[in-house]
Design a protein around this nucleic acid. Structure first.
Lengths: 339, 339
DNA sequence: CTGTTAGCGCCTTCAT
DNA sequence: ATGAAGGCGCTAACAG
């Protein structure tokens, strides 16, 4: 039924080994024969069975990509970029979407990618035992987001610096009551919320502004959470005149809450986000831009390099640049409103 | 190095075939032996090599998912839902992201999923030759979006009905000059833009409104395109008082254009979208909601059913329900503005 | 119920 | 530069 390497060999009048060598560009085949074999293979529509070649060679030419939520903009954007790099290099992508706790547990106990992948790209921050499980695969590991992780190449941004410029921007505009909508903590290695919070505290202290715990609210990294958080901030005895949201999606929720309260940004409250979400521009949201697709592509390339040069010491951590994008949701505090 | 089925067999004092049978839940193994083997396998951390078992059995337990742009909300949402269904059933997902024309051509000529998948879920509308290529795989095929396709199970919505209720909503509000931001045509089987346009024309005719070609502009299914389209509509000699955008992302672009022109929805122009994008709520966008994740899950389940019941005739087409979601961007035409 | 015997399709020595 | 033989790890028939 389906055409095998032997069919090609017969049709070309050579042995299977020669076909194998020829098609994979290995030395030991005369140019003429190689050309002929290539032509025959094409005309027969031959493709080597991945199962068979993996079994024989030990290489799978596929990369496992582990994602917490494919549906979220950040992750799908990273995945998109990474997949392009992998497929261009001839690698397939096995996707594992670990949104629910059950899916996640199932994945790490059964570890379906054992013997199935040449490398793993993780877009989630693994817990302690998950790290161990991944390491046991014995393949190169790269991760996006999060702090340094022994045995992993981590691609990310400087969260501290990003959050600093966000808060400093608000301070420079003249704000003194600055709220923060933060992300929930999560796993141990998930340093992002911690770093961004520390930067917030540092800039406040540096500017001689007293920190008011009432102005810090959790927004769960979601639009809905951001909306709830802003609602709580507005209900404070002395509401903030500006808010730093640790993600654009939470910032969008905050804008939504403002609209619901017949308030506007930046007239009543300034809002700055973090990420430069594809729709931040549509909403006119001022934010800290990070290269999302860029991180996916970079991580993928680093992984491929480890595959092609197994001897070379892989980088432990790579930082991508960030920058402030000024749009329309931040302005100096409104003098007509009470501070 | 890695533990094989023979290691387990030795450790358990049985043969490899018995281990194979026991672990896969096949009949012909006493409960006692099965239990013991399961325990031994677990303690050794054994997982069957997918390559080897696929090669021997012909089954791969993996599904190929083909996507035009993983980065776009609609597709990543469908993918998210489908992946969950597949992985719960013990299937892995091989992802192919075919954004660029080169990637797409490469995919359909090399057809890397030959002999690698048990079924294919396509989120793109295949061209004529692409349909042939997919059929040649000899596995069940399901597709999301698009018209009926022989040999495929197609899951989708009633585009006609959806667009009809959108336009009718505008008419009912009293609008007579109704613009449309449409999606570009694309491949032959891509009936969505055609259907939605036809519904637009039908409702206009049905309401005794003359169709003005100047009020129809292409928005390319993107935010930017929607913005450009709305800008053109506003420049018309007699601009529309309401606009139907064939997707929420184009509608968001339209809202952006309005803001840039110091206009507002619905005060100056009403805007209705299509999809119920996750951020439609944030923007207060009135729209036609379609079950996006629902379609992904449904398609995945139909595929699994075909796998478990190969005899049964698969459904040719499945329609999911849609409904109008009233929010804040539509209202009766403003009497203070000239029609 | 369990073990034995052949492959699945390819890659990799080792000869020639 | 090429061919022959063996094996990758597992499953599926066939015996017992």
């Amino acid at each position: 039924m389906t055409v095998s390497i032997i069919d090609v060999a017969h049709a070309a009048g050579v042995s299977a080994s020669t076909v194998s060598r020829a098609l994979r560009g290995r030395p030991g085949v005369s140019d003429q024969v190689r050309e002929q074999i290539t032509a025959v293979a094409a005309s027969l529509g031959y493709t080597a069975s991945r199962s068979a070649s993996s079994l024989a060679s030990g290489r799978t030419f596929t990369i496992g990509v582990v994602v917490p939520y494919v549906g979220r903009w950040f992750f799908s954007t990273v995945l998109d970029a990474a997949e392009q790099v992998f497929s261009k290099a001839g690698y397939d992508v096995l996707l594992y979407n670990l949104g629910s706790p059950e899916a996640r547990k199932r994945f790490f106990t059964k570890l379906p990618l054992r013997k199935r992948v040449d490398a793993v790209l993780s877009l989630l921050i693994p817990e302690e035992e998950e790290v161990t499980a991944l390491r046991s695969l014995g393949v190169p590991l790269t991760s996006i987001v999060g702090g340094p992780l022994p045995g992993f190449t981590v691609v990310g941004i400087d969260d501290r610096a990003g959050a600093e410029s966000a808060v400093r921007h608000l301070v420079n505009l003249g704000h003194r009551r600055i709220g923060m909508i933060s992300g929930s903590s999560g796993p141990l290695h998930w340093t992002t919320p911690v770093d961004r919070r520390q930067a917030y505290l540092d800039v406040l202290a540096d500017s001689g502004i007293e920190h008011d715990p009432a102005l810090e609210v959790d927004g769960d990294y979601t639009v809905k959470g951001g909306e709830r958080a802003m609602t709580r901030l507005l209900a404070a005895s002395r509401p903030p005149t500006a808010v730093f949201a640790q993600s654009d999606e939470m910032a969008m929720g905050a804008l939504r809450a403002l609209r619901r309260h017949r308030l506007r940004a930046p007239d009543d409250v300034s809002v700055i986000g973090f990420d430069d979400h594809e729709l931040a521009d549509v909403l006119g949201l001022t934010t800290i831009a990070q290269p999302v697709a860029g991180q996916g592509a970079e991580a993928a390339e680093l992984l491929l390099r480890q595959l092609s040069e197994p001897e070379a010491e892989p980088p432990g951590q790579v930082r991508m640049p960030i920058h402030l994008v000024l749009r329309e949701t931040t302005a100096p505090p409104n003098p007509r409103r009470p501070q």
